[in-house]
Every structure is written in C-alpha cells, then in structure tokens.
Amino acid sequence: MAEAIAPAELPTIFDASTCVRKGMCPVMALQGQEKTAMQSHSIYFEQHGTGPEKVVFIMGLNTSSFGWIYQVKHFAQTHSVLVMDNRGVGNSDTPKGPYTTSALSEDILTLLEYVGWNNGRELHIVGISLGGMIAQELALRIPERILSLTLVVTKAGSAGLVSNLTPWKGISSLVWLTFTTDDSKKMDIVLPMLYPEEWLDAKSTLPNAKGRTNREVVREGLAYRIKNTRKQTLAGSIAQTAAARSHHVTSDRLHKLGQSIPKIWIVTGDVDHLVKPVNSEFLHQHMPQAEYQVWKGVGHGIIGQEPEKFNKNLERVIREGREIGSKAPWV
C-alpha cells in the first residue's frame, strides 16, 4: 500500500487528535489510466479513529467532507472513519467534467484500496444526497464487502420525471448560489434551502448553542466551514450537478442491491427542498427489506439538524449490520 501524501498546508476542521492519516489519493495514477492536464486528478481524504468498525461517509452536491463534522467527532471515538472530498470540491482536484455517479464511485473504490480497506465484508457505507447516489453505485460494485448501507435524503433517479425534479425552492436557490460570490449572501440562501424556517428560528439544542437560535448556530458553523474550505470552481459545481442529474439506478438494480447488503437504512425528512421525499419511498419500494424512516419537520440538512438522533440511529444500523452479516447467507 502506497504512503499517503499529507501536505501540512491542507486545512481541516476535524479534530487532529483523532486523525490517523490524511492526504491526497492519486486516483488516476492508481487506476493506470492515461493522464492529461485536464483529466488526471487526486482526491483528498481523512481517516479518523481506530475502532473495529469501518465507516465511510460520502458527502453530497458541491459540499466538502467537512459537512460530516458532527459525525466524525462522534464516531471517531469508537469507530474507524473515512471521509473524502469528491472530485470537483474541497481539497480534491477538479478534472474536466461532466461527472457521473459511476465515475465518482470508482474514485472512492480506488481510495478504499489505497487505505487498505479491502478485507472482505467490513464496510459501513453512508451517503447523503449526491453522496447517496454515489453510494448506490459503489455498493453495486462491491456488495460482498459491505455490512450496512445508509442512504440519506437521496434518490435512484428512476422514480419518474416528476419525482426527479428538484423542488422550485431548491432549484432557484442552487441557481442563485452558482452566481453569488459574497459568502454572507450565500449563507442567506443556503440555510433556508437546507432547513425548515420554523426550525431555524427556534431556540437551539445543538452543541454549543448557548441560548442562540438554530439559525445563529448553523450560520456560525457554516461560516467556519467556508473559511476553511477551498473555493469551489464554477466548472466543479457544474460537473458535480451533471452527476446528480444523470444518476439512474433501475428498479432491477435496486432489487439486486437490496438482496446483497445485510442492513440497509433509508432516511429522509418531510421538508426537503432539494430531493423530494417520494424518492426515498421509491427506494424502499424496490428494496422492501430495507429500514425506512421519514422524520417530521426535518429538511435536507438532516445530519446537521438532528445530529444526535442521526448518530444514535447510525450506531444501531452499524451494530445490526454486523450482527446480520455474521450469519448465513452473508458469512
């Protein structure tokens, strides 16, 4: 296994005391593909914790791995955690687009080989939004290595035209974000896109709330992330958006996936302005053995709106995945 490049200048918001390694995974070089100035790329990753269960967190559209701040802090204490910036965002390179969820999943598969997470059925894959789409493609490639699959506010892309359309509030927000350069104005657009207004205005119970509203707490956290994240290029944003738009996993492939993974958890909020909740219902219809939850009053930013609830449920899913996977026919 090659040694990771860990340049000190790459910023992070995660706890350095739990970090096992970080750096750049030379995806194209490891895949043995012809490299050109526009196509060759590496992806940034961090590995935290040394626990027995290996958890892979895959982030969504135009967002760096820093979006998993609550999850990395929690799970690094007892698990081994791997996060990465998908190509086109954060500290990862931005090769020529458009991208596909299939290609993005190949990046992560290469990363798993690079860090040595390739020892049989040992992985717990967690994907949110675009990350959930990538997770589907990844799981279809290596089902025999996965104990649990968590699909958060995501879609298969095959539920029909109306279901696949992004709600108007979401699409208009994404357009404004594409052409807005002022960070303060960006936050004014992002917050109501990800969270219900009623929740944003309520007194917060999030960590370090100190009597403030959820809007104030989340805005502070987002500002900190923006400050420590490399600016995404317009090309990267467009290329990632193309991957989300073109994602398509057929009903037959979903059925195959559902039968291949010991434990699957599908979760969504009922106030999602980016991915309609009906898409999660569609996933469950074609993977009926999966656990399916709809959280009331919760938006697309579910992992930040309900971090404690999400983390506790994911702990259970990981445990159940291990228990089910230890029995026939999964052994």
Rank of each mutant, 00 (worst) to 15 (best):
E220L: 07
E220C: 04
E220K: 15
E220Y: 11
G221F: 06
L222K: 10
A223C: 01
Y224W: 11
Y224Q: 13
I226G: 05
I226R: 14
I226K: 11
K227L: 10
K227N: 09
N228R: 09
N228Q: 09
N228I: 01
T229D: 03
T229K: 01
K231L: 09
T233A: 02
L234H: 00
L234I: 06
L234N: 00
L234Q: 01
A235C: 01
A235V: 00
G236F: 00
G236I: 00
S237H: 03
S237D: 00
I238T: 02
A239Y: 04
A239T: 03
A239M: 08
Q240F: 05
T241L: 08
A242L: 06
A242P: 05
A242V: 05
A243K: 05
A243L: 09
A243D: 04
A244Q: 12
A244V: 14
R245S: 12
R245W: 06
R245H: 06
R245C: 06
H247S: 15
H248K: 15
V249N: 04
T250Y: 02
S251H: 07
S251W: 01
S251M: 09
D252H: 06
D252K: 11
R253C: 04
L254Q: 08
L254R: 05
L254W: 08
H255W: 07
H255V: 15
H255E: 14
H255N: 12
K256L: 12
L257H: 11
S260W: 07
S260G: 12
S260Q: 05
I261P: 11
I261G: 09
I261Y: 08
